[in-house]
């Protein structure tokens, strides 16, 4: 195991982590403010990826693809909030799970109907393709490096938005006491639609960015959704900071575990057994991490309430 390979895998883990953060941030905001569990968040990720692939395919511009992804996901989010989600805030979690499960079916089959069952491909933009040499002689794909940069920028922007702006004050107030801020004259239902659309846009952005390094297909959102759940359970529901730390932990654990566990097992096992046992254990590693966090902190690392 060379330090060069280690550094590369750490970068891969970071890249995976920041993309998970984009998903988890929206989920945790929506839960924190509206108390809603949204299974259809993965569908918004898929909507973003498909919008980007379609727009970039039609215009040839990756930037236009990203813009289309943000717009389509935000609009889909706002529409779903107004038509369906709004009626679920006062309901119990079971109704929320079921209604958003129904939304997944509608989104997935609707997308399959529009675009067909075959995956679409979204190309990495020309300016960001190819490798770049980092200090220390590491060759790393420029696009993945850009993803890390974009993810960190969005995280910083989101932190500023919540800590420093008027909207941010309203979001934080909404988490604490929704009756009170409604009484103070804030249009709470507009605020909810806005937060939902913001979360959707973040998911759509993640879908479009990741779509360029994976294939864009129906059902791509749900595995990421479930990982985002693991992230916010680890970080603590409702906490943006928790989502960030949790996302990096999950991204690094998953990436490094997949590479290093088989190597580690080879030290005391036959190579073939070590590879399969290592891969099996690595696939469970983040869930073991989640279990471990839960044993010591049932409400997550930065969570305050269950």
């Amino acid at each position: 195991m060379t330090p060069l390979l280690l550094a590369e895998q750490i970068l891969n883990g970071l890249q995976f982590g920041v993309m998970l953060f984009l998903m988890a941030a929206g989920l945790t905001l929506i839960f924190g403010v509206m108390g809603l569990i949204n299974l259809a968040h993965g569908s918004l990720y898929m909507v973003g990826a498909f919008a980007a692939a379609a727009a970039a395919g039609a215009t040839g511009s990756f930037a236009l693809g990203l813009a289309a992804a943000l717009a389509a996901a935000a609009m889909a989010g706002a529409l779903v909030e107004i038509l369906v989600i709004r009626r679920l805030y006062a309901r119990d979690h079971l109704d929320q799970v079921l209604a958003t499960f129904a939304l997944i079916l509608i989104f997935s089959e609707g997308t399959r109907w529009l675009f067909g069952s075959f995956p679409l491909f979204l190309d990495v933009p020309g300016a960001l393709s190819g490798p770049v040499t980092l200090p220390g002689g590491i060759q790393y794909p420029l696009y993945r490096l850009a993803l890390i940069g974009i993810g960190l920028l969005v995280a910083a922007g989101l932190g500023l938005l919540i800590a420093r702006t008027r909207i941010g004050i309203q979001i934080r107030a909404g988490e604490n006491d929704r009756e009170m801020i409604a009484a103070l004259g804030v249009d709470i239902s507009r605020l909810y639609t806005l937060i939902f659309a913001l979360g959707a846009a973040l998911a759509g952005l993640a879908g479009a960015l990741v779509g360029a390094i994976q294939s864009v297909q129906v059902g791509m959102g749900e595995p990421v959704l479930i990982l985002a759940f693991v992230v916010i359970v680890i970080g603590g529901i409702g906490s943006i900071k928790g989502a960030f730390i949790g996302a990096l932990l999950v991204g690094l654990t998953d990436t490094l575990g997949g590479i290093f566990l088989p190597e580690l097992f080879k030290l005391f096992m036959e190579p073939a057994t070590a590879t399969s046992a290592g891969a099996s254990l690595a696939s469970m590693l983040i869930y073991i991490l989640m279990g471990a966090v839960l044993i010591f902190r049932p409400t997550g690392l930065f969570g305050s309430r269950a």
């Binding site: 569990i37 595995p223 989640m290 839960l294 049932p298 269950a306």
Partner: peptide, 19 residues
């Protein structure tokens, strides 16, 4: 493990263990 928590945490954790 899951019953250490309740509500929405429980839903997400059982989902994660299934996965």
């Amino acid at each position: 493990l899951s019953l250490r928590t309740a509500g929405v945490y429980f839903i997400m954790i059982t989902l994660a263990f299934g996965q």
